[in-house]
Every structure is written in structure tokens, then in C-alpha cells.
Simulated assay, not measured.
Amino acid sequence: MASSSMLLSLFFTILLFFFLSPTLCANSQGNALHAMRSRLSDPNNIMQSWDPTLVNPCTWFHVTCDSNNNVLRLDLGNSNISGSLGPELGDLKHLQYLELYGNNLRGKIPDELGNLESLIGMDLYNNEFKGKIPESFGKLKSIRFLRLNDNKLTGSIPRELANLSNLKVIDVSNNDLCGTIPVDGPFANFHMESFKNNRLNGPELKGLVPYDFGC
């Protein structure tokens, strides 16, 4: 009898877990977005609806979710927000589009953005980002569009990006990048306009070890 009671209790525990798991996941994503908001100045109250007491973030403006309450898209382009990004954005495991262009975001681009394995498009252009392009971006196997232009990025273009077979568009123009431009993988198809107004020294020579002139 005790055994049957234990089995019944276990059954209801598992059932409860399956019912609550989407909510728990959504709350985790909501916590990540709320942590992001706490780092930012938002003079136009674009993120006013981002209330952490709600069940999940899918009711917030500028956040798009799927039917399972997974955050797929974050649209905060041209929102006049300022501040820096933190590692919490790397917790949005289902995110497909990160649109933060045309703001006053500064500081380094978090390495944790490389954990967004579902990401298709990342638009961080026209901000004040400094530091290097994270090598972790080489893990973004689903990414097709990567726009980092018009920032203050330094260092070389990570060679890990040459492994992104789905990458169709890259723009790192108008930064302070140095070294040479990869020629492998998708870089064989990119126009030189994507790299203009940097301190880059042209494409690498195939078969030779890349040399970062001036870096």
C-alpha cells in the first residue's frame, strides 16, 4: 500500500513538473531580460512593460516568443537606450534575433553571446561597443546575419568566424579593427565594403599563417 502511495506521489510530481516547466523556463528568461534592463538607462520608457512580477516575459513589449513561451526575438533597435550588456543575455537559449542597433550601448560585447546557438541574426551596429569581437561567436552555428559596424571595436577578426557555414552577411566596417581578413569559409563571398574604414591590411594569403599587422 505504501509502495502504491509512493508511486502515485511520484506520478503527480512528474506531471506537475511537465506542466510547470514552460513557466519555469519563461521565468528564467524573464530574469535574464530583467537583469539586462537593470544595466540600462531607458529615458523613453521603452521597457516600461518589463515587469518581473508577471508570469513570463512574453507579454512585454519588444519581446517575441513562441507557443512554449520561449523568447525568440528581442527588438530594441533605435530605442535611445544606453549602458552596457552583461552575461545574462547568454541565458536566452532559444533567441533567434537580437536587435540592439542604433543605441548608445558601450563596453565590451559579452563572450556569453556565443552561447546563443539558435541565433540567426545579431544587429549591434551603430553603438559605442569597445574591445574585441568575441572568439565565442565561432559557436553561433545558426547565424546568418552579423552586423557590428559603426562601433569602436579593436583587435583582429576572430578566425573562428570562418567556421560559420550559414553566415551570409557580415559587416564590421567603421571600427578600429586590425590584422588581416579571413578568406576561408563564408569570407570567400563577402564584399570588401563589409570591412572598410578599419586598420585591416587586406585578405590573408591562403596557405600562410595569418599575421595581425599593427594589432
Rank of each mutant, 00 (worst) to 15 (best):
S38K: 12
Q96F: 07
S5Q: 04
P43N: 09
S38D: 14
E88L: 14
L92Q: 03
S67E: 15
T23I: 10
G77V: 08
H62F: 06
W50Q: 03
L7C: 01
L7E: 02
R37Y: 09
S82L: 04
A35E: 11
L7V: 07
A26L: 00
W60G: 05
L16Y: 14
L15T: 12
M36W: 11
N70T: 02
V71H: 03
S28C: 12
D91P: 09
Q48N: 11
L89P: 11
R73S: 10
S84Y: 08
V63K: 05
H34M: 15
L54P: 12
L24Q: 02
S5P: 07
S67H: 12
T64W: 05
A32L: 10
A35Y: 07
F19V: 12
V63R: 02
D91V: 13
R39K: 14
N70H: 03
C25Y: 12
S49F: 06
F17A: 12
L85G: 02
F17W: 12
T64R: 07
F11W: 05
S9Y: 04
S4L: 10
S28D: 15
V55E: 15
D42V: 11
S49Q: 01
L95Q: 01
N69A: 11
S21T: 05
D51Y: 10
S82D: 03
L85A: 06
H94Q: 10
L8N: 00
K93Y: 09
G83S: 00
S41P: 14
L7T: 05
N56P: 08
F17Q: 04
P22D: 00
L95N: 04
D75W: 03
G86F: 08
S38Q: 15
W60A: 08
S49E: 09
S9V: 06
C58N: 05
L15Q: 08
E88C: 14
H34A: 15
L24P: 02
W50G: 00
T64V: 04
I14F: 06
N78Y: 11
N45Q: 11
L54C: 12
S82F: 00
S38W: 06
S28M: 14
S38R: 13
I46R: 12
S82P: 08
S21V: 05
T53R: 13
L8K: 01
V55T: 15
N68A: 04
N44L: 15
F11G: 02
L16I: 14
W50C: 00
S9M: 12
N44T: 15
C58G: 06
I81P: 04
V55H: 15
L74I: 07
N45A: 14
I14M: 01
D51H: 00
D66P: 02
F12D: 03
N44R: 11
G83I: 07
Q29P: 09
S84C: 14
N31K: 15
Q29R: 05
F12M: 01
F18P: 08
L10P: 08
I81G: 04
S38E: 13
I14N: 01
I81V: 00
L74R: 05
D75N: 10
C25F: 10
G77W: 03
T64D: 10
C65G: 00
L89F: 10
L76G: 05
S84P: 13
D51E: 01
L20I: 09
S84R: 11
I81D: 07
D91H: 08
L8S: 01
F18W: 07
L85M: 08
P87E: 06
I46W: 02
C65R: 02
T59S: 14
F19I: 11
L72T: 07
S67G: 13
F17M: 11
F17G: 02
Q29T: 04
T23C: 07
L8D: 01
A35F: 04
